[in-house]
Design a protein around this nucleic acid. Structure first.
Lengths: 185, 185
DNA sequence: CCATTTTTGTACTGTTAGGTACAGAGTATC
DNA sequence: GATACTCTGTACCTAACAGTACAAAAATGG
């Protein structure tokens, strides 16, 4: 009666995409079973806490990816290497603006209240790590703080505007501008 | 059996705030009746199309406000007057970042599909009107296009980041930076 | 190849969703 | 003050919601 192939790890990216597309409230269990191919039995086996559990695991997964692929390099590697690597990672991760930021989307509505610590931590660590890299690249404290905040903010804004206008070039254009602005000064 | 006080026009801002807080899917009819004080009878009397009708009317209302208070002035008045007026209007409208942009929020999840024309129009006209004002202020076409896009994008990003981090100063800080950047060049 | 554990489908729960029907109350008009 | 129209509460509908129970199946592993 079962097919027994799925691993919990394989399901997480699928769940992430579902929450991205539909939002937390819009992601109903029937749509989750539909798009993951997993029945309720399997879903509640892997995520005993139900939908909130799934979203929490997905958020933790996203957070871990950024921590490993973006924040840590910014903190530990040479800024001259880590900052360009960030542009590449961000462009790839968000599919040049075709994919939204789940953390940002959750921040906008009441879903924020369920995951406020994770959401706050994600953005806080991103800005701090970038600020740290900019400081080590020779920027003064004020400029580094300003540019770090501006960069993360512009990435989020570009994701909103990309989805709103359907302008496929907007995200890449924004990253190019940020590259120039952050490289200068 | 009835109290007969409400006007349709009075309900729209309440509905707007509800959709802002809860998102389209999160705004259930029971929460709408609860927070507006109107029963289903009244709601369906004013908005025969139900929830989708309410959201459409709210979006049209938001759009009309921006058209009248921001876009039109940018197109018709002196840029030296209209652009500073835009910063003021935006700061007041979004309560210095304490209030999100409904249009931007709807753009992120599948709600976008229901209202894509309105959403696209809102951002498109905003960017175009600002670009127009910047052109008339003496900017060349390329700079005007870039600054207009960057400005609207940064406002949206600041709203996301404000809600995510709870940093109350972020929105005002961002507007100040935009003011300087747009005034220069 | 048998015992145990992990994974899965199905059936079911109570609750809430959005929406409809409609009668009655309130206001207005003449 | 009878008539028409606007507004509102209540009762009700079907479908979908999140979640539970559980037994059968698949893998594991000795």
């Amino acid at each position: 009666m079962a097919r027994m192939v799925h691993e919990r790890t394989d399901v997480i990216p699928l769940l992430a995409e579902i929450f991205r597309d539909l939002g937390y409230e819009g992601a109903t269990l029937s749509r989750i079973t539909e798009r993951t191919g997993l029945g309720k039995g399997s879903l509640y086996h892997f995520f005993p806490g139900g939908k909130e559990d799934m979203a929490a695991v997905v958020l933790a997964d996203v957070d871990a990816w950024f921590e490993r692929s973006v924040f840590q390099p910014l903190r530990l590697e040479e800024p001259q290497r880590a900052i360009p690597a960030m542009w590449e990672a961000v462009d790839a991760y968000f599919h040049s603006g075709q994919r939204i930021c789940l953390v940002g989307a959750f921040a906008l509505d009441e879903t924020r209240d369920r995951f406020s610590a994770t959401i706050r931590g994600y953005f806080g660590r991103w800005i701090e790590a970038l600020q740290d890299a900019l400081l080590r690249a020779g920027r003064d404290k004020e400029t580094a703080a300003r540019d770090a905040e501006e960069t993360v903010l512009a990435i989020q804004g570009a994701l909103v505007l990309s989805r709103a206008t359907g302008d496929e070039g907007l995200f890449a254009r924004t990253l190019d501008r940020l590259r120039l602005r952050v490289a200068a000064a």
